[in-house]
Design a binder for these strands. Structure first.
Length: 577
DNA sequence: GCCGTTTTCGGCCCGACTGTTTTCAGTCG
């Protein structure tokens, strides 16, 4: 079977079909089925090829007979008549106006059909000429809002990295927490679920005086624009362009609202469905019996317990497998932020790091770590000042000398050795085996086809001297897609050779992705959370690696560097058999 | 278009906010 479109491309097309159906005025449930199937597909770690071959595609909830056929056609022929026909009804440029806040398919359709508007530029012109006001359902305020929306789309429409959203949320959270009328407050949404990128900040508070809390929110110094302000909810755009919402409820409603606004949408749908089976109607305000009486829950844990489920941590609430785990008592005890006893894959001034060996070691010791693995670049990474054999040997001497001076801390010798075009490594096997560990990474020639790239990575991981692949997929969040590769096959080779998976905790990477980590977990592979730190501050990025691990349902035991140095070194030996 | 311990038809989450309405549609989450 030849695959002409990968999963990502198919997910994108399914989403587009959903929008095109809405533009066409189709049955809303039919419209929703396509993005729902896209999400279902996204939730499966397997490649599209494997999903089709194993017949798992049609067994996926949300993908029925019709969508299964369409997905297979897309994957194997690279196209779909149904999709092509839908696309021909509207110009491609119409899609860009759907990025404008509060402008959905219904309005877009009217704009296109009545005023022939099919682009941001055309829309801007029509607004400025006051031509929208003549349309049913449009007025002066809509025109003004759309103009602001166009500005917003042009200047800022992307998601942001997790730490960016986290930083932006902090002062707002603190202000609300300190507000005299606040009872409880929490960050919800994708930020609470620790997604790798975030579109907006969702805040929730409980109070007996919601207006008072909301007023402080919309007038906070970090707010640049208020886009909505009602009695229980306000929406703002912060300096820098990130959007934030605050919802205020009563304290009795708070746990339900917290659950509801944490999501994900798929998780909530599953929980609501389960509540229904227990004779309970569930919304963001509570559980309601048939006679509309409430079932009180003091916190989220009781909400889950009421449905005979163990408490599901927010990171797991993606509608993937967490409910199945919770009902069978299989929920993993997730690894914690302070579980790491040491870490690998750090750079120093020997290659492209900003801090010296000694500075990095001191910083790691200061974090309570027992060991730090150095992993400077190898000579092929000339742009990063990669080390040749001679400089690597010199670094080893420095490490030996420093280790002698240190008490209760161990520096591990390592390398982030470049994987060359054909999968050979930039250092000879015997050099690598002299080190305590070695990460093999791709930094150049990123555009091989899937087969060649997969073979290249497998050859590297089969090398006895290698401990794990550095940032396996090569993605840079919001900037660069992963290189073409078959992750499942690389994971199989990793498992077969007793190697580890790196969870690269650099927030620009978070690589391997948590969805694939879940797949690796199923294959029984051990993980290592590393910061890929190029400075002392970079070491703290490991907490984002913990987020990835928790999203993949990993326990401390799944992660090699939760072990004290002695046990860690024992485990390390097994990768080099 | 999906789904099914109410199973092959008839549901499909639903509430807040906004703007244009004079009772509601569209959008969002």
């Amino acid at each position: 079977m030849e695959i002409l479109l990968d999963k990502k491309a198919i997910i994108k097309i399914l989403g587009e079909i959903g929008v095109l159906l809405e533009l066409s005025g189709e049955n809303p449930f039919k419209c929703r089925a396509y993005p729902a199937a896209a999400r279902a597909l996204e939730g499966r770690p397997e490649s599209i090829e494997d999903l089709i071959a194993s017949d798992e595609l049609g067994k996926t909830k949300g993908i029925g007979k019709g969508l299964q056929e369409k997905i297979i056609t897309l994957a194997t022929t690279g196209g779909l008549e149904y999709y092509t026909e839908l696309r021909s009804r509207f110009p491609d440029s119409l899609f860009e106006i759907l990025n404008i806040p509060n402008l959905g398919p219904k309005k877009a359709k009217v704009l296109y059909q009545e005023l022939k508007i099919d682009s941001l530029d055309a829309l801007e012109k029509a607004c400025k000429e006051g031509r929208l006001q003549d349309l049913d359902g449009f007025g002066k305020k809509t025109e003004e809002k759309i103009l602001k929306g166009i500005e917003h789309v042009r200047s800022y429409s992307a998601r942001v990295l997790l730490p960016v959203a986290e930083q932006a949320a902090l002062p707002l959270h603190e202000m609300i927490a300190n507000h005299t009328d606040t009872i409880r407050v929490a960050v919800c949404g994708s930020l609470r679920r620790r997604r790798e990128t975030v579109k907006d900040i969702d805040l929730l508070a409980s109070s007996d005086k919601p207006e008072s809390v909301l007023e402080s929110f919309v007038t906070h110094p970090s707010v640049s624009r208020v886009t909505g302000h009602g009695g229980t909810k306000a929406s703002v755009v912060l300096e820098g362009g990130l959007a934030a919402d605050l919802r205020v409820v009563s304290d009795q409603e708070y746990p339900f609202a917290q659950h509801y606004f944490t999501g994900s949408k798929d998780h909530n749908t599953l929980i609501r469905g389960r509540a229904k089976k227990y004779g309970l109607r569930m919304n963001e305000y509570g559980y309601f019996k048939e006679d509309e009486s409430r079932v009180a829950c003091a916190d989220e844990e009781v909400i889950y317990n009421t449905l005979d489920l163990a408490y599901i941590p927010p990171e797991l609430r993606e509608g993937v497998r967490e409910i199945e785990w919770a009902e069978n008592g299989d929920l993993p005890t997730l690894v914690k932020a302070d579980s790491l006893k040491g870490t690998l894959h750090c750079h120093t001034t020997a290659s492209d790091g900003k801090a010296s060996l000694e500075q990095m070691v001191n910083a790691a010791a200061g974090m309570g770590y027992e060991y730090l693995g150095i992993g400077d670049h190898s000579k092929a990474a000339a742009y990063a000042g990669g080390l040749d054999e001679k400089r690597l040997a010199k670094q080893a001497e420095e490490i030996d000398a420093l280790n002698k001076k240190l008490k209760d801390f161990r520096i591990l010798k390592g390398s982030e050795v470049d994987i060359l075009r054909d999968g050979q490594l930039d250092f000879a096997e015997e050099i690598l085996l002299e080190l305590d560990y070695a990460a093999a990474s791709i930094h150049s020639i990123l555009t091989l086809d899937e087969k060649a790239m997969t073979a290249r990575l497998i050859r590297a991981i089969e090398s006895p001297g290698i401990t794990f692949l550095g940032h396996l997929s090569g993605r840079l969040l919001l900037r660069r897609e992963p290189y073409l590769l078959n992750v499942a096959k690389v994971l199989d080779a990793t498992a077969a050779n007793n190697k580890w998976i790196e969870i690269n905790a650099n927030p620009h990477r978070l690589d391997l992705d948590w969805r694939s980590c879940l797949e690796a977990r199923d294959k029984g592979i051990k993980f290592c959370i590393n910061p890929d730190a190029h400075s002392t501050e970079g070491l703290a990025d490991n907490r984002y690696g913990i987020d990835v691990a928790r999203k993949a349902g990993l326990c401390a035991d799944d992660i090699a560097n939760t072990r004290p140095v002695g046990e860690f070194l024992e485990l390390l030996k097994k990768t080099r058999a």
